[in-house]
Simulated assay, not measured.
Amino acid sequence: MKKILLICCLFLGIAAVSHAQGNARRFNPEDRAKRLQTQFKLSDEQTAKIAGIYKEQGAKLDSLRNTGGGRDQYRPLMDATNTKVKAVLTPEQAAAFEKWQTERRGRMRRGGDGGATTAPPPPAPQQ
Score class of each variant (00 low, 15 high):
Q57G: 02
A119M: 09
V85I: 15
K60H: 05
L6V: 14
K34F: 12
N66F: 11
M1R: 14
A94C: 03
T117Q: 14
Q127R: 14
T117P: 04
K2L: 09
Q21I: 04
I53A: 11
G58L: 11
E30S: 06
D62L: 05
G68I: 12
S43P: 07
A96D: 07
A124L: 13
Q57H: 15
D31C: 03
A59F: 04
L5R: 13
A16E: 00
S43H: 07
G114Q: 06
D44R: 14
R110S: 04
A116Q: 11
R25S: 13
G52C: 07
A51N: 06
R75H: 03
I4W: 13
C9E: 04
Q39D: 11
P123Y: 09
E98Y: 01
G22Q: 15
Q93R: 07
P91Y: 02
L12A: 14
L42E: 14
G115A: 04
A16F: 07
A33V: 10
E56Y: 00
Q21Y: 08
R35Q: 12
S63I: 05
T90Y: 11
K49C: 00
I53R: 10
A124W: 08
A95H: 08
K84L: 00
P121I: 00
D62S: 10
N82K: 08
I50C: 12
Q101R: 13
R105A: 01
L42N: 13
L61R: 15
I50F: 11
I53F: 13
F40H: 07
R35F: 10
R35E: 14
C9W: 13
G111N: 02
L6C: 10
W100C: 01
A24F: 11
H19V: 06
T83L: 08
I53C: 07
T67Y: 09
Q21T: 01
F40K: 06
Q127W: 09
K84W: 06
E30W: 04
T83G: 00
G58C: 00
Q46P: 05
R110G: 14
A96L: 08
Q46E: 15
G112K: 00
T118F: 01
Y54L: 14
I4G: 09
C8D: 05
K60S: 05
T118R: 06
Q46Y: 08
